[in-house]
Design a protein around this nucleic acid. Sequence first.
DNA 1: ATTAAGATACCGTCTGGACGGTTTGTCAAG
DNA 2: CTTGACAAACCGTCCAGACGGTATCTTAAT
Lengths: 186, 186
Amino acid sequence: MSLAHHRRKQPELVRQQLLEVAARLSLEQGVAGVTLDAVSQAAGVSKGGLLHHFPNKMALLDGLFDDLTGKLDRTIEQEMRSDPVAHGRFTRAYLSCVFAMTDETDAQGWQVLTIALLSEPQLRARWRLWVADHADEFVGTDSSAGCLLARFAADGLWLADILKSHDVDQPTRQAMRAHLIALSLQ
Amino acid sequence: MSLAHHRRKQPELVRQQLLEVAARLSLEQGVAGVTLDAVSQAAGVSKGGLLHHFPNKMALLDGLFDDLTGKLDRTIEQEMRSDPVAHGRFTRAYLSCVFAMTDETDAQGWQVLTIALLSEPQLRARWRLWVADHADEFVGTDSSAGCLLARFAADGLWLADILKSHDVDQPTRQAMRAHLIALSLQ
DNA sequence: ATTAAGATACCGTCTGGACGGTTTGTCAAG
DNA sequence: CTTGACAAACCGTCCAGACGGTATCTTAAT
């Protein structure tokens, strides 16, 4: 007993680890697989330890949400700075993120979140809020039908990646991206 | 006791009722709300009765899946018969279904299924199979980049409807539909 | 036409386990 | 020596599924 008591205390690292494990579990076994027992055990922490960092399960999911939307926001902001054309700027940044994430390691985290989003009414509401905020912010530049369509298509591709239902090869993917970028300029 | 024992036996009707109730519950309370107790009680059947028709919970969800994909298949087939152009015929039928379902009452059942799909790894696999089967069947006519993109965009719109994240008005919706049909002809 | 013999369609209860959360205890760092 | 970071045991609830029964239906031999 008390084996883990003697390791050096690294609260921030443990917190990070818990979030990572929660994401991985949700990917591998679905949202139902994200139980306090499973997460804490896989992270090498007791359940009490988990509940010390996140007072309840919802807080854990909220933590995931904040983590990932935070990353998304930063990436989008960065992407937008390197785009000289105002019209559709946000949409193109969004496209970049989606197309980048479908191949990178970060993708798993987002796949997880999407699934959780759909199942958890509370997180659905938070996502709704995120979309509404950004729609308001970029109403002048990104509310054309073309932009909307481009973002929808990106979401569809994203969904297909999550479900692994289609297997889109890289050339086709790039062609689609070019097409959607053109759409965002309309 | 045994009050319901004496009603006339209508196995097919009871089965149908159980599926309907399961769909309704999942819509109203999320997937977590679909418990054997809740379903059986709301359907006016004992839990034993439910487990007679569906030997376990997964079988119940499978039943839902079969029911709904069956309906989808029939609708698509019907839609395809009234389309004289071969190229992109399946994609246009798919579009019709998605656009129709985002407004009709049947939509609720599909929203439910989509959510369940994403959460349950087993159902995700079944959906993957459905897509693969149809991709094979229509490989000659519906595998162009335009068709793929059109279907992705439809999925994105569908997702937005489920999450109620965007509020797309009817004129925009129709414009998008026209655009996607044009894409399917490329 | 009757009826015995199964098959089918249920009912109602019980149980074992999982899960979210609480409480109490312990150690170590500042 | 106080406080933050955990551990470990425990609790109440909920839920999937098993089980043993009973009532209705079907079939087929008489």
